[in-house]
Simulated assay, not measured.
Amino acid sequence: MRLRHLLLPLFVAPLLAACVNDTASYSIDGTPEHSLSLVREQPVFWNDKVNLSLIVSRMPNCVRRHSLGSGTAKTLVEVWQVPSGAFIIRVGKRMYATETQTCEGFARLDADPVTGMGELRGVFRLNQGQLAFVPKAAPGVDAGAE
């Protein structure tokens, strides 16, 4: 009986290793105090679905975590900034608007903004197997390509 309890962690550990639980950040002003961070959490190893969350922070004034719904480990999350300073987050066909002045403003958008998407700042995506924020590159270079 005792041997079985000792061997159980050896069989369970590889199953848990398949789960995704990581984060990557976009530093808005080049400092970690003002950032957007993507969190990916896979609740169960047998399903490739991951829960996506966005942490909006401008420390020490505010920090909030907002749900972006679900995706897969390979889901691209685009970050766009509009002239007002607000951000549009695109996850596949879903879009959300958020801001970093109070970190409370967050809403799902039903359609492209009338005034446009603004400027693409970059993409959260897998980069050499790790979640990373890949800034918008020079013209002609695709930030979404792996």
Rank of each mutant, 00 (worst) to 15 (best):
C62M: 03
L120K: 09
I28H: 10
T98L: 05
L52P: 06
P43Y: 00
S25D: 15
V77N: 08
T75C: 10
V44L: 03
T31G: 04
P9H: 05
R58F: 00
T100S: 13
M95N: 12
T98F: 05
P83E: 02
K74I: 05
G122P: 10
G71F: 06
R125I: 10
K93Q: 12
T100C: 06
V114Q: 15
A107H: 06
A17F: 08
D110W: 06
V91T: 11
A13G: 07
L52F: 05
G92S: 02
T72S: 08
C103D: 07
C62F: 04
Q81C: 11
E41R: 07
M95H: 11
G105K: 06
D22C: 09
R58E: 04
K49W: 09
L15Y: 07
K74W: 07
L76D: 09
H34Y: 03
P32A: 10
P9S: 08
Q101W: 01
P9D: 02
Q81N: 13
A24E: 13
P113M: 14
F45N: 03
L10S: 03
P60D: 00
E78M: 15
L120W: 04
L52N: 12
G122K: 12
D29E: 01
K93E: 14
D29W: 00
D48W: 05
M59N: 01
R65W: 01
E41I: 01
C19S: 01
L38R: 10
E119D: 15
T75M: 11
G122I: 13
F106R: 04
V63S: 12
L15P: 10
R4N: 10
R65G: 06
V12D: 07
L6T: 05
A18E: 13
A24W: 11
S27Q: 15
L38V: 12
L120F: 07
V82I: 12
V50I: 11
D22V: 03
S57P: 04
L6R: 05
V63T: 05
G122Q: 14
V56P: 06
V44P: 07
Q42N: 03
R125K: 10
N61M: 00
R94C: 06
S57T: 04
M1S: 10
